[in-house]
Simulated assay, not measured.
Amino acid sequence: MPMFRRALLASLALPALARAQGAWTPDRPSRLVVPFAPGGSQDVLGRLFAQAIQAGTGQQMVVENRAGAGGILGGEAVARGPADGLSLLLATAGQTTIPKAIGRRMPYDPDTDLAPVMQLLDSPVALLAGPNLPVTDAASLMALARSSPTPLPYASTGIGTNTHLIMEDLKARERLKVEHVPYRGAAAAFNDLLAGRIALMFVSVPSVLGFSGGALKVVATTGAERFPSLPDVPTLTESAVPGFTASIWTGLSVRAGTPPAAIAHWRQAFASAMGEAALRERLDGLGVTPAVTDPAAFGAMMRQDLARWRRVVAPLNISLD
């Protein structure tokens, strides 16, 4: 049984904390703050979860899009809101670990103003090579990037994003000769990759699965296991760089000071929703996998994430302010 399936099944037991502290249920509609604009992948996920929660519990959950500043405005909406358990943040690294690692000025401290509820999802990223590059796999791409007389241009979906920092981490570890070319999103980067103006890039697996503009050369993914939707694509750690893994995660956070019983309620509700086959099927189709954890494990994962990105950004002199 795949690792993420075992973790999901293990998570579906009723939390002892909820039993110990008594039941808590919302006394009015709750809101799930999605820190990105409508129509994007996180918005789709947020609406899927809100529908699943309403179907499973009968409790109304409203999705509220708070886009801006890379998601920080959405994080602020929850971090500066009431600690009543009725406002939840669909959290990613963009509102928590990455801006703190970069040293970006933020109107809240993710460590002290937000409390972890659970990790929800995990998705590896895909390593793409330009179709005209003389490479057939990740190992030959790494060899080319080490020996190239001039740096190979690589795309990201923006300065300080996951796809930027993952490549910089790989660059430092493998001594790659690559240079950064940031884009506003994956679509424009794909066009330049196919046209030969970009040599390589990391991009989310959902973006790869949703692309229909040409044949992408996917040489590896960055999970610990092969991704189910791309079973013929090896992981980077098995094919070229042992031990190198990376992912784009999605979790659930609330305002610090939220009652523990409310946190336990939402963890149980979301974990139960992810036990439903219909929701799992939708998530599989979107290129994400369940990664249900408890608050302590989610908090520990974010601390590890922060430490990794601090190490990566230290020599880069990134400023987004």
Score class of each variant (00 low, 15 high):
D122Y: 07
Y108I: 04
S87D: 12
L9H: 09
P149K: 12
P38A: 13
M301R: 15
T150I: 10
P38Q: 09
P260I: 05
A262Y: 01
D192V: 02
T161G: 04
K217R: 15
F36L: 11
V312A: 07
P153Y: 09
L279H: 05
P260F: 03
P260R: 09
T136C: 00
T237K: 13
S147D: 13
R308K: 14
S319N: 11
V312M: 06
A83R: 02
F211H: 12
G46F: 09
V205P: 08
S253M: 12
A186H: 14
V63W: 01
P234M: 15
S229L: 15
W249M: 11
P2K: 12
W24S: 10
G85Y: 08
V78R: 10
T163M: 04
V292H: 06
G214E: 04
A10P: 01
G94K: 06
R146M: 01
D305Q: 09
D232V: 04
H265P: 01
V44D: 13
G70S: 08
G287F: 00
P315V: 00
V241G: 10
T289E: 13
N191H: 14
Q60I: 00
G85A: 12
D192Q: 14
A52H: 04
A277D: 15
R173Q: 13
G213N: 10
G75F: 07
A155C: 02
S41A: 14
R175T: 11
L193A: 09
P182A: 06
R104S: 11
